[in-house]
Structure formats: structure tokens, C-alpha cells
Design a protein around this nucleic acid. Structure first.
Lengths: 334, 334
DNA sequence: CTGTTAGCGCATTCAA
DNA sequence: TTGAATGCGCTAACAG
């Protein structure tokens, strides 16, 4: 084929082949306009086709201000929750004729700023951050610089956000365990820089108080979302003089880690210890012992976040109610 | 602050504030040149700092041909293996002063082409695909159009690639089970459009033949990488008149699904059925029953793929040897 | 509806 | 070392 294939055909090439001016070609090929079926229009499209023309995204977005793409910042992609959330966001973007760009931060505030810079340098129209920290003013800076953004999954109470009602989720989890007769419930918490972790803890604490459960500070452990964190935290709980009969973990991964620790100690789930996770990732229902979990609708969060950006409207703070999904890791205290 | 913060300061703004020409500012701020400490140089950097200048990636890459970014195509990001692999790729890109852009395909060839177009339209310098299919000529098309690319994880035997020795991995898995005395081993396969799945199957078949194991076609089932696929496949295996005493699953996720099915049938792992997975994802060692798995070095694959692109060299076909990691889901046949 | 013209922000010639 | 000028590929005025 011609070299156009190599370095990519330009609008000029297409225009020449179709025998029209560059601007006509540009107009015909404009994805926003509906396809006309005039003769010239067809010639241009044919030319574009045979040359394998691809609009230069850089040049295009340089000219018109705005790229129709939104930047997404996540702590990591190796975490199923974040992977799923990002996919949902990308999917929703597509529906709005937007594209998505990701950057990861490893939950490091510095890398968070770096990610913002990098995405902004790619001229994204707006940002979705899933990395908001209560101890870091990144969102405030974005507000100060008037950079359109939405917080997802984790909020800061100020910037527009789409989250699940983590407080309610935490409450439901402990409530479920209490309904099964458990009075001594371990809480495996996430990092307190994440509003989601804080909310889940607050909710479970409320349940403990309201229901008059065993309120022992030693039952509150952990500060990570990961399998490893859950594993270690559970070890602490099992080392207690009086271990809990049930555990609520801040994420499904932490719950899985907790179950690993429990298994190592020769204790059985749910016969001796009940476990509840959070997020209801697809894996949860397919574990050897299907995991009871609080379902957070990542799809709704994603849709909400993208829509707030797309509509430009002020829907401000979306909060979706979670649902307790009982499975096989929770049972009545005997 | 000034409006520069809003729409982003340009090189012109920086130059004016520093009292130099645009080209001088451009040169000083060129990330490739080492930082000079002349007076002007410092003034420019200060100006850039106070204005919060961010180079316009679009304009920059429009001018010089090339964006120093590579496009990565994965089937999905909700799969831990792909998430991890992408993160490793992004990390390695950073080391080479490159950036990475992802696109997902859901393992759909059409969306694969779409992803290529989209990435190419963003003028990536090269592509890494983890979605190569033996039944689809996408890689061949890239070769025809002379688009620099490397296949990772899955290869087509022609385009440059970085993979693990899947054949060997499959062999090692079955070999491990045979060493434990198992003679009737179930094979939960992946989709045969993926070279990785084909290789693992071939390797396990070789082991079956070489070691004179029970060679029953009914023992070969499945065609998916997912938890669900593993679950369903295991159901088939358990429905056999004479079920296997051990199972090798094409991925850890499939293995987890298999264990879920096994548990539902009240059968125990590894006492009654041994299970081996593939990839050794972080989760594997943290399962209630730690999963025996064949470790594939995703980091090496990622590094290899990026380096082949960065060095531009012809390292062609990198194959990394996998390692069998025995844990608690496999035990001697009693 | 079409073509002409003028930049978008930047990197790189070329002269000084 | 610096600055003036040019154009990357494209879209948006504008005028016909």
C-alpha cells in the first residue's frame, strides 16, 4: 500500500484523493455531524476509507479547545474493585461519546498530583478521582483551579461526588451479624485516609452501640484494603484472649485474607467464625465458601460520576444505598 | 490567581513572565535536555513554576512526530492478571521515560480493531497487545502496516512477543500432580483462540502421554479463563462416572471457580481432589486453602515487551520459564 | 454547501 | 546562547 498507511494519511491526502478542499473533508468526517449522503460526502468517505485515514487526535483537540476525554485516577488497577470501576466508567464514557484515560497513584498523594498533571497535560476535559484522601487537599486544589472533577467511591464532603452510603453499609453488615446472634464482632478497617473506610467503620460502630454489642476497642484492627492486610488483621483478632465470633472486613479482599488466617488456625467459617466483606466483587459468590458481602453498585457510581461531568449539571452529591447479600460465610451463633 | 491557572498557562505566558522568547522557554523546559543553571534558565523555570505551566501534550507531539507513549491493549481490566500486567507495563514505561495508554476489548476482535484505531489516532509510538488471537489476523495487519508492536502473554508465532513458556507450564502442572500419585487428571482449558490456553493444554497433554496417565477425552473441558468458567467446567468433571482425583485449571481464577464447585459437592480439597492453577496471582497464596499454582512472571513479560519497543532492537521472541509453586491445594493421592 | 484563511501550542529550523 | 519564523494536522470563522 502507499506510505499513507505507514505514517498515517492526513486530511490533506484524503481531500486530494476526493478532489475537495481540506475543510470539506474535515466537515464530512466530523464525527459529530450526521452522515450526509451527497455525492461529495460519499467520495470523501471512500477516500478516507481507502487511505485508512485516522483523525489525529492531538491536532484535532489542539484546534478546538477540549478533547472529549475525561481522566480517571485510581490507586491501582491490580485491585479488582478499581479495575471494575474503571471499566464501568470507560463504558459509560463511551455512551456519552467520551473517551477515558487512566492513571494510577498507588495511593501516594505525590503520585496523585503527578497523575493530575499528566492527565491535565493531555488536556482532559475533566477528572474523576477515586483516590480522595481526607488528609490531603488535592480536591481542594482542583476546586481552587476550577478544574472540573468528580470524586468517586471516596469523597471529601465538598467536591461533587458519587459514592455508596458507606456508613449504612457498615451498619448493615454488623446488623446482619447481630441478627444472627453475634455479640462480639471484630472490625477489620481500611486506611482512615479514605472516606469509604471511615464511613464503614462509623456505620459498624453505630450498630455496635445501638444494638448494645460488645464494645471492646481491641476488636477494631487493620488499616488496609488488601488481602494481606485482612490476613494480618485477622491474626491480631485471633490472638485476642476472647476472639470475636464474627468479623466485618472493609473489603472483600480483606475478608478473603481474614478467612485465610482463620483457616490457618484450624477454625472454620462460618461454623466458628462468621465473615462479611464489602463490595461484592464477582469473585465473592464463587469462593469455595461463598462470601457474604455488602454490595456496592460500582456501575451506578460510574454512571453517576460520568453523567455529572457530561451534563455539566450540579447533581453534586450522589449517594447510592448498598445492599447486604448474605451467603455462606455467615451463620447463626450456636 | 490569574486565569492562566484556569485554562492552563502556555509557553508564551511563561516566556513573557521570564522576559525571554518562546523558543528559549521551550528549550529550557525541554524535559530531554539536562537542567542548566544559567540565570535565564532559572528565570524561565521560576516563571513556569509560578504560572503552574504544563506542557500541552497535544501540541508538543503534533510538532515533533512521536509522542513517547505506547498503547496497551488488554481484554479487560477487571481481571487481576491483566490489571497487574498493565501496571507492570506502565511501571516499566516510566523507567524508559515513556507513558502508557490502555484500551480494552472484552476479547472481541472488532473492539480490538477499534482499540488499535483509537490508540493510533492518539499517535502512540507503538502497541503492546495482550489480546492476540490465533483465529484473527490483527497482528498480521499491524505487520502489514508496519506499525511497531509486541505481543505479550499471548503470541501468534510471528510478531515479536514476550510470553511465558505455556507449554512447559502446563507440563509442570500435570507433572506435579502425577508426582503426587494422581493418574486421572482433569484439564480445565481456556479459550483456544488464545495461544496461552493452547500452550498450557498442549503441555498438559504431553505430560499425560509421557507419564502414561489416564487419557480420557472426557477429562478435557472448559473454554474460559474466568471464575464462572472454572466453576461450570468443574461441574462437568464432577458429573463424570469416574471423576478425576486432580484438576489443572488454565488460570487461578478458573481454579478458584473449580474449588467453589467442588465445595458445593461436599468434596474436599486437597483430601479428595487436588487443584492447580496458573499465574500465581497474589490472591492465590492468601486463599483459605492456599492455591498451588504455576507462576508466570508478569513483571518479566512486561519488562521484556517494553524493552523490545524502547530499544527498537530485534529481540523478537522472549519466552520466560514458569515455575510450579506447590501449596495446599495439592496433596498425595491416598 | 464549499473553499480560503487563520491560528491552536509547541519544537525546530535558521540567523544573528 | 538566543530570537524570529515556520509548520505539525486540524477546525472554525468567514466569504463566496
Amino acid at each position: 500500500m502507499s506510505d499513507e498507511f505507514l505514517r498515517g494519511a492526513t486530511l490533506k491526502d484524503v481531500a486530494e484523493l476526493a478532489g475537495v478542499s481540506i475543510s470539506t473533508a474535515s466537515r464530512v468526517l466530523d464525527p459529530r455531524s450526521t452522515a450526509k449522503d451527497s455525492a461529495t460526502s460519499k467520495r470523501v468517505r471512500d477516500a478516507s476509507e481507502t487511505l485508512g485515514y485516522r483523525r489525529d487526535h492531538a491536532a484535532s483537540s489542539l484546534r478546538r479547545q477540549g478533547t472529549s476525554t475525561i481522566g480517571v485516577i485510581v490507586p491501582r488497577l491490580s485491585d479488582a474493585v478499581m479495575g471494575i470501576l474503571y471499566e464501568e466508567i470507560a463504558r459509560e464514557c463511551e455512551r456519552h461519546d467520551l473517551s477515558a484515560l487512566v492513571a494510577t497513584t498507588q495511593d501516594d498523594p505525590d503520585r496523585g498530583r503527578q497523575a493530575v498533571r499528566s492527565l491535565l497535560s493531555r488536556k482532559v476535559d475533566a477528572l474523576i478521582l477515586t483516590t480522595a484522601r481526607v488528609d490531603d487537599g488535592l480536591a481542594a486544589e482542583l476546586r481552587a483551579e476550577k478544574i472540573p472533577h468528580v470524586l468517586a467511591l471516596r469523597a471529601d464532603g465538598v467536591s461533587p461526588s458519587a459514592v455508596t452510603d458507606d456508613e449504612l453499609g457498615g451498619y448493615l453488615a454488623v446488623r446482619h451479624l447481630a441478627d444472627l446472634g453475634h455479640r462480639r464482632i471484630g472490625l477489620i478497617c481500611g486506611p482512615l485516609y479514605a472516606s469509604s473506610a471511615v464511613g464503614r467503620l462509623a456505620g459498624s460502630r453505630r450498630a455496635v452501640r445501638e444494638l448494645g454489642l460488645d464494645d471492646d476497642p481491641a476488636l477494631i484492627v487493620g488499616e488496609g484494603f488488601s488481602v494481606e492486610a485482612g490476613d494480618e488483621s485477622m491474626e491480631q483478632l485471633l490472638a485476642l484472649r476472647v476472639p470475636p465470633t464474627a468479623v466485618f472486613a472493609v473489603t472483600d479482599h480483606a475478608a478473603i485474607g481474614a478467612m485465610a488466617a482463620i483457616a490457618r488456625h484450624g477454625v472454620s467459617v462460618p461454623a466458628q467464625i462468621s465473615v462479611v466483606g464489602y463490595n461484592d466483587i464477582p469473585l465473592a459468590r464463587h469462593l469455595p465458601t461463598p462470601l457474604s458481602s455488602v454490595r456496592a453498585s460500582l456501575d451506578l457510581i460510574a454512571q453517576g460520576a460520568v453523567r455529572m461531568l457530561a451534563n455539566g449539571g450540579r447533581e453534586d452529591h450522589l449517594v447510592f444505598p448498598p445492599t447486604m447479600i448474605p451467603r455462606s460465610t455467615t451463620s447463626r451463633l450456636t
